[in-house]
């Protein structure tokens, strides 16, 4: 009975593995690590698949031998009959020391090859992005293109991207599961990651190193688009946002400048030039706000401005002056107009 149960369990585990692998190919897993869309992701995937199948093979063989041993040599009745007292077997010991070592060579060789491959320097034409991890949002700066933005990273498909990772506070980790592995974002040193996204789309990223209260809410989006769209995006980011036309938005612009928002935020073409908080020059054009956690709707934006700490625990955003519902509504209209 117990043997059958154990076997059933092993089968269940195997079946589960297969089901999950199949499942990950489906759209229901937007953050899957095993359906890569970049060269970097595929390099990892290749090693992972090889190791995975070695492990499955070893698992099946060793667990089977274990089960066979239990099944064959189990006794139910209590007796004082002694089995043969075997103390060891030197040749066997040598064999099963060498065997795992040989298997490990098959794992180590592609591993080491890939370690060096993914650490290769970026090609000349790579788009450089400086990524800064904050508590709790992401700052993206394209030094060669003159673009500064936050929480929404845009890259052209088919062109190498080199991200340089830096932090002025605690540790973070930059991770877009479908693009590839994570890299720590640390104060005092700059880490790099090079990848070429091959498939256009919206991919999700997140901080993977515990960084304080709202670590769970430190997300971002990666927009991989065709080169023309990317160029258009760059042009729009470089230019100041259009001046507000709507009366409500104009009122919001005044509130923005007088309520204290300028202490931390930058909006191009206005006196608000601080870069402590996220750049808001084109915040209206982003898909999500509050570092990838809320859809960019007027309701969510109002909710955020109303009480940032209720949305994101211990968020550093301070509202120096108590805002009326009216003022918040105006601010939302203004921010939405920043396309």
């Amino acid at each position: 009975m117990s043997i059958r149960r154990r076997r059933f369990l092993a089968l269940l585990v195997l079946a589960g593995t297969c089901a999950a692998l199949a499942g990950c190919e489906m759209v229901s897993h937007p953050r899957s690590t095993i359906s890569p869309v970049s060269d970097f992701g595929w390099a990892i995937q290749d090693v992972y698949e090889q190791i995975f199948w070695w492990c499955v093979g070893i698992f099946v063989v060793v667990e089977s031998v274990l089960l066979i041993a239990i099944f064959r040599f189990r006794v139910r009745e209590e007796s004082h009959e002694r089995p043969e007292q075997v103390h060891g077997h030197t040749k066997l010991e040598i064999a099963w020391t060498i065997l795992p070592a040989v298997i490990l060579v098959f794992i180590a060789v592609p591993t080491i090859r890939t370690i060096f491959a993914v650490a290769a320097p970026a090609p000349q034409d790579a788009i450089r992005v400086n990524v800064t991890g904050e508590q709790w949002f992401w700052r993206f700066e394209y030094p060669d293109l003159g673009v500064l933005t936050a929480n929404e990273l845009h890259v052209p498909v088919g062109r190498p991207v080199e991200v340089s990772l830096h932090s002025n506070n605690v540790l973070h980790a930059f991770w877009i599961p479908r693009v590839g592995g994570k890299r720590d974002v640390m104060p005092g040193r700059t880490n790099r990651q090079v990848f070429t996204v091959q498939k256009p789309g919206l991919y999700h990223g997140q901080c993977a190193e515990f960084c304080g209260a709202s670590h769970a809410l430190m997300r971002f989006d990666l927009v991989a688009e065709d080169p023309t769209s990317f160029d258009r995006w760059v042009e729009r980011q470089k230019a100041p946002p259009p001046a507000p036309v709507d009366a409500r938005a104009k009122e919001g612009a005044t509130t923005f400048l007088t309520a204290g928002c300028i202490a931390c935020h930058r909006i191009q073409g206005t006196p608000s030039q601080s870069t402590i908080g996220p750049d808001l020059s084109h915040v209206g054009s982003r898909a999500r706000i509050a570092s990838g956690i809320l859809d960019n709707t007027p309701e969510n934006l109002a909710r955020w401005i109303h009480d940032p700490q209720a949305v994101k625990p211990e968020a550093k955003m301070i509202i120096p002056k108590k805002l009326s519902e009216n003022e918040i509504e105006a601010l939302v209209a203004y921010l939405q107009s920043l396309q």
Binding site: T33, I44, V47, L66, T111, T114, I115, W175, K182, E209
Partner: peptide, 26 residues
């Protein structure tokens, strides 16, 4: 033994740094 084998094998997976870049902190 049965369970430690599973823990040991997943350990072999993230002994490979490229794979670990995906699995670390997940």
């Amino acid at each position: 033994i049965a369970m430690f084998i599973i823990g040991g094998l997943s350990g072999v997976m993230h002994a490979s740094p490229p794979v670990d870049l995906q699995q670390q902190d997940s």
